[in-house]
Structures are given as C-alpha cells and as structure tokens.
C-alpha cells in the first residue's frame, strides 16, 4: 500500500478535498482544472498531473464516478459515498478552524 494513499484511511488530503468539492456537479477533467486555477487568493495549487492521478484514485475508491464521455474528455461526478465523505471533511475542517480561532482570539 503506498504511503501517500490516504483515501482509505478516511481523511482526505487537500487535493482530494478540492476535487471532490468541485465535482458536486458534473464536470470534465479539464473543467475541474480551470475551476481550480481560478480558486481565489492562490491559497491552493493543484497541478494537472496530480489532478489526473487524484481523479483516478477517487474513482477507484468509489467517491467519484464517470457519468459520460465525449471523445477524449470524461465527465466526473461525486457519488453518494463521496458526498458523505466530503460533508464529514467539511465538518472536521470547521471544527479545526473553530478550535484554532478560539485559541488565537484568546491571545489578543
């Protein structure tokens, strides 16, 4: 089992999180890339090579599915499993931020 494959462990890494979120509605691979390039304030960079491997990993893990393909481009969309994982992850990240904000706020 590769070390960096964290999908099965229940925790999504940043690339997986952004890509799942981008696919709550069906999009082509390149449309996901375009969307991620437009993420505000450049807080995230997901490279195209990473995007491609992550899409495949998420499909293999059952969190995404291919719903259509037009020639070269495939259309991906989140599965119910993927959706619940995404929601869990949002809740987890929110709790992390709330914890840190509370501590930082008490220092001011």
């Amino acid at each position: 089992m590769p070390r960096h494959d964290s999908i099965s462990l229940g925790e999504l890494n940043d690339s997986q999180f952004y890509i799942l979120a981008a696919l709550v509605q069906p999009r082509h691979g390149y449309a996901v890339m375009q969307l991620l390039l437009e993420v505000p304030n450049q807080m995230v960079h997901i490279g195209p090579a990473t995007l491609y491997t992550t899409l495949h990993k998420l499909v293999d893990a059952g969190l995404l599915e291919r719903c259509a393909s037009e020639g070269v481009s495939k259309v991906y969309v989140i599965t119910p499993d993927g959706y619940s994982r995404l929601e869990n992850e949002i809740a987890r990240k929110r709790a992390m931020v709330a914890f840190a904000e509370q501590l930082v706020g008490s220092m001011r």
Binding site: G29, L37, G47, P48, A49, K74
Partner: peptide
C-alpha cells in the same frame, strides 16, 4: 520542463495538462 511518470495514460491526461499550460 517537467517530467511525470504515468503508465499508459488516456488522452484526458494530456488535455488536463494542456489546460494548465503544460
């Protein structure tokens, strides 16, 4: 220049890379 290793990728791979300027 950049190098990547992918065992027999489909054409989508090159399309996604081209979208990002590679």
């Amino acid at each position: 220049f950049a190098i990547d290793y992918q065992a027999t990728p489909d054409p989508e791979y090159f399309e996604v890379c081209a979208t990002a300027g590679w």
